[in-house]
Nucleic acid binder design. Sequence first.
DNA 1: CTACAAGCTGGAGATAACTCCAGGTCAACT
DNA 2: AGTTGACCTGGAGTTATCTCCAGCTTGTAG
Lengths: 131, 131
Amino acid sequence: MYTIGQAAEMTGFGHDTLRFYEKMGLLKPQRKRPGGARVFSDDDLRLLFGLKCLKRMGLSLEEIKSFTISNRCMTERSSMSEGDEAVLRDRIGLLTDHLARMEMQRRELDELINRTKNNIRLYNELLDGTP
Amino acid sequence: MYTIGQAAEMTGFGHDTLRFYEKMGLLKPQRKRPGGARVFSDDDLRLLFGLKCLKRMGLSLEEIKSFTISNRCMTERSSMSEGDEAVLRDRIGLLTDHLARMEMQRRELDELINRTKNNIRLYNELLDGTP
DNA sequence: CTACAAGCTGGAGATAACTCCAGGTCAACT
DNA sequence: AGTTGACCTGGAGTTATCTCCAGCTTGTAG
């Protein structure tokens, strides 16, 4: 259990950013302390690290929100009732779409990495070839 | 040689976006037509496609700017004079840093893809396991 | 008991990256 | 000559994502 200052320090976000994420509904730290101070759990921190990663992948906070919320729902329920099946199928669809996008992104990234390696090699040859 | 409208259509950017990129110095299409209309070359289009790719990787326009400008300089010169060597080394440094960042991003992306695949699998088992 | 650091809130301000608009130029068609 | 459509400019407006601020509460150290 951490204060907002500790959570900020550990995740590298600013405290204002964490409050902003809460406003957006990305995060729901508990509020039990007298003045209404936030209490961040290890789960909250994990979510924040995941968020940071997704952000670096270029997802918007809204996308991340729908993504992490569907994930959270999954881990919360261990048994299923009859009507939940459709919801579950929706989530599978969402995740599958997201997966496809990430895989495309990976292909692009690979190509970019290769092109960059090539450029670096060319540069080095240019250097070595003209001493 | 293309008009701004054609370039916009082909690259998927809006025409205002292309003008905005020019204002930023990311792009310098020729301006030979009477009213000062822009003329986009195949090189300009290649640059735009590369830009789009880099953007999807999460780079800011400023980062892309320094990156594409250093690349453009490379392809422009085929022979080297003595003082250029230091400049060249700088560029190699810039590209190498960028490469390292991209490779880290790739590792993160891989992990994320695997986690997502796992989640999808778990969901599907949940569905299949409770008919 | 006072001082101080760390939290809190609501709202304003900042930045990046567009996006739109009014009013003007220019070439081509009718 | 007039209309139309694509392009031009400078500048205002928008959206997402923070970032900062003034003024208040609370827990702890001296």
